[in-house]
Structure formats: C-alpha cells, structure tokens
C-alpha cells in the first residue's frame, strides 16, 4: 500500500489535532496510508481556504494536489477537491481515496500541462490564480479584440459588454497573467467560480488534462443555469450527470451529445467545483439509451415541450 505525506495548514490547533486523529482512524480503511508531514515534505496539502495565501500560491505552483476546507456557509472554490467544515471521517476518507486515484495517474502530477492545447492553458492558468487574494496583485486575461477580464480576491472583474460576451460563449480569452493594472472603471464583478464555468466551456474538444478519461463523473450539485445562462445540451448533460456517475463516453451516448460538448461540460463543472470523480469500480454500468426503450410517449412528449419552449437543440 502506498504511503502519502499530508500537511494541514490554516487550522486552529484543536481542528488540526482532530484531523490527525482521523488519519490514524483511517489506517487500513483508506486505499493509501496517510502520515502528517511538513509543508516542504508533503505530497498533498489540506488547507483551510483562509490559510496564508502566499503558502497556497507557492503550493499551487508545485502542481501537487490540494484539498480545500471551506466553512459551513462558504461557497465552493473552483478546485477539484473541496470539503465542507465540519469534516466527518467518512467524507475525509472518500476524499483521500479520490486524491489517491489522482496521484496514481502519473500524467496528472503536473497541474500546469505545458503540452496542453491553448484553450486548456487558459483554464490551467485560471486554476492557478483563482484562489489568490487581491493583496497578491491582480491577474488579467485578454481576448483578440482587447477585452480584459481581471481576477483577484475571489472575483472576476470585467466591463458589462465583456461579461455578456462571456455569458454567451463568445469570448476566447488568453492565459491569465500577473498585472499591476487595476480593473477598468465601470467593471462589474462576477464570482470567480462563474468565470471558471465559462472558461471550462470555452475549452478544447479533448477531455481536460486534469480529468481522468477512464473515471466516471457525477454532479455533486447542479450549475445555476438561471445565473450562468442555459443551453439545452448543457441541461441534458447535467440531468444525466446528476442521475448517476457516467464516463465521458457514456455521457455522450446517453445524452446523444457529441464528445466535444461532453468534454467542455465536464471541464466547466469541475472548474466550478460541481463535479465528483468516482473510482471506476463504484461507477454504475448503465446500458446505453439506445439499448433501453424509452418509456412510451416520453420522448415525443418532451420533444414537443421543447419545441413549444422554443429551445430546440
């Protein structure tokens, strides 16, 4: 069995102590063995979101996984591993097993994939800076027409027209870079997890490099399509991914959507912190829709409803 070193930062002494006891309790039950370590020696970081931003950004450059712990009412950061306080043993156990799966996949060691295509580089650059506080300075991305999106302090800032273009999927941003400039006058705010969703949707046709092609995925929560804007194919993919864990291939065959759309949807959902990767053994194999006859009347009925709603795919 593999042994991983884990460091926790940003917790009160009693909370830290409780976490260490949980690592002991999990011994023999988790897929790997977890031992506390210093920040420098650790393979995995367990961080309170309020932890020292300098330490967090230094860690994010290392490309090693980080599990964020958010408080009861906090909103989800755009990160793949997030726990909500108070953390229970079973939640921590399943999260560490997810991280174990992630560590076993060698190509995932580098979070910033240098060979990644341009579209995924934008997403990766956002992932790296999303948690920065404003004190660390702003980061900015630019599109071909010179529209800018700033990121700092958990929010994205952009002019209303730029936000509208982002919402409609018309904005092709470059990578996020540090800047000394402040957001333009008249810029409006958007939670960074919403920006993360749009950047994920604007990604490449291929599966995002930080996702495992063989894993099954399910939604932990639905995206707020009322706030983010909706497209029929995304609603359908969300309905499938909410119903059960699906591999990208199953999601494509079940929903009838092209694999490229599935991949962008999965990237968006994971960037926005809505996706859970399920180890393959737990994934429920489902016969493809083609094999199972739809309940009588439903397909036609929903098709008619869609025509009525003017949302023809």
């Amino acid at each position: 069995m593999a042994t991983y070193k884990i460091c926790d930062i940003g917790f009160a002494p009693d909370a830290s102590h409780a976490l260490h006891s949980m690592f002991k309790i999990m011994e023999g039950r988790a897929q790997a063995s977890w031992v506390p370590a210093t920040l420098d020696a650790a393979d995995v970081l367990l961080a309170n979101v309020t932890a020292d931003p300098l330490a967090l950004s230094a860690w994010s450059r290392s490309g090693k996984p980080v599990i964020f712990v958010i408080d009861e009412r906090g909103s989800f950061p755009p990160a793949p591993f997030v726990l909500r306080h108070p953390v229970r043993v079973m939640q921590l156990l399943s999260m560490l097993d997810n991280v174990t799966e992630h560590l076993r996949e060698p190509r995932r060691q580098a979070t910033v994939a240098p060979e990644g295509t341009c579209a995924w580089r934008v997403a990766e650059s956002l992932r790296a800076v999303a948690m920065h506080t404003v004190e660390r300075g702003w980061n900015v991305a630019e599109d071909a027409e010179g529209a800018h999106v700033w990121v700092g302090g958990g929010h994205a800032h952009a002019l209303p027209a730029t936000l509208a273009a982002l919402r409609e999927g018309r904005l092709a941003l470059g990578t996020f870079q540090p800047t000394t400039d402040w957001p333009a006058a008249g810029a409006e705010r958007l939670p960074v997890r919403d920006l993360a969703w749009y950047v994920g949707l604007a990604g490449d046709e291929s599966l995002a490099p930080w996702l495992d092609a063989g894993a099954a995925f399910r939604l932990r929560r639905w995206p707020d399509f009322g706030r983010l804007g909706a497209r029929v194919e995304l609603l359908e993919l969300a309905a499938h991914a909410a119903a059960r864990p699906c591999t990208p291939a199953l999601l494509a065959s079940g929903s009838g959507q092209p694999l490229a759309t599935v991949n962008r949807f999965l990237a968006a959902a994971s960037m926005a912190g809505l996706l859970v990767a399920v180890p393959r053994v737990e994934a429920v194999p489902v016969a493809s829709t083609a094999a199972a006859p739809p309940a009588r009347g439903w397909r036609r009925f929903v098709g008619d409803l869609r025509k009525h709603l003017g949302l023809v795919a």
């Binding site: 609603l235 359908e236 969300a238 309905a239 499938h240 909410a242 119903a243 059960r244 079940g254 489902v286 016969a287 829709t289 094999a291 199972a292 739809p294 309940a295 439903w298 397909r299 929903v302 409803l305 869609r306």
Partner: peptide
C-alpha cells in the same frame, strides 16, 4: 422536462 426525460428514457 430534462430530468423526467433522463429518468424515463433509460434502464434506470
């Protein structure tokens, strides 16, 4: 409608 379609349109 999408939820209903998903649930009624497969083996689940």
């Amino acid at each position: 409608a999408c939820i209903l379609e998903t649930q009624n349109g497969n083996a689940y």
